[in-house]
Nucleic acid binder design. Structure first.
Lengths: 132, 132
DNA sequence: TATTCATGTGAACAAGTATTCACATGATCG
DNA sequence: CGATCATGTGAATACTTGTTCACATGAATA
């Protein structure tokens, strides 16, 4: 998605028309919002490693099992994670590669290198630009 | 993208140690949270096209100028956008390529797969459990 | 069957937050 | 200078939301 459908120096009306409709905006915002809570984010980063049970996630992320369950319910409802029941255990995992990509992009952004695998950390880190 | 620096079937302690510390988690969560508000998201998507002034962003995004200014203040504080003053106007743009990449990933996902949008699927509650 | 275990859930309180309104700041123009 | 314009900001309100607590569900075990 480069300059989108709007060409270079598009006028305001063109830009406004090029925006996703409210429904899509809200859907995307919902997902970002889900990733925007530290407790849920810890859960998701933990799931970057491998599928985990609710109890494990509580231990790893440092939240109560109830809080984790509530969090997973929301994440499930928005297809951010998927669950698989085996007996009385529920194994959760990241729903798809897009979620993983979002997490890795963001972690890379703050310079966290411990979690990512062979990914060459050649990020360009453009430091704003505000001054001219 | 492979699992993580933790080997296959890493134990819980290993996974827990591999998590970013609280400070990094909160930083990343803050950015996601900023992208998680529909009004701010509209602003940011508009900025993927080209730099815009506060007034233009108000028109394009459909929020009041005051609301936009408040939003931009937060986005600026977290280096999500950068500003350049020209006379009495302030031109805002996306701060760096990471932000753009996050937006593109999310919007692209919605546009192509309907995962967030739910192609013919109710998107508020998902069963998602027990799929094997 | 009774018990235990893992997970799910509803209600309610606490904490955070986005918007509006009124006004401040600071630059430009007549 | 005084007026006007674009933007920034503080306080207050209304709204959203995450956590805890108590309990429910449903599967395994004895």
């Amino acid at each position: 998605m480069e300059q989108s459908s709007a060409g270079p120096a598009a006028d305001l009306a063109t830009i406004r028309r090029s925006l996703p409709d409210q429904e899509e905006i809200v859907d995307v915002a919902d997902v970002f919002s889900l990733l925007g809570d530290p407790a849920r984010l810890r859960i998701l980063v933990a799931l970057t490693s491998r599928p985990l049970r609710v109890r494990d996630l509580a231990v790893v992320s440092g939240s109560s099992e109830s809080a984790v369950s509530h969090a997973l319910r929301l994440l499930r409802a928005h297809r951010v994670v998927s669950a698989q029941r085996i007996g009385r255990e529920a194994h959760y995992r990241l729903a798809d590669s897009h979620v993983r990509a979002l997490l890795e992009l963001a972690l890379d952004h703050v310079g966290h290198t411990g979690l990512l695998h062979g990914v060459g950390v050649a990020h360009d880190d453009a430091p704003a630009l505000g001054c001219r």
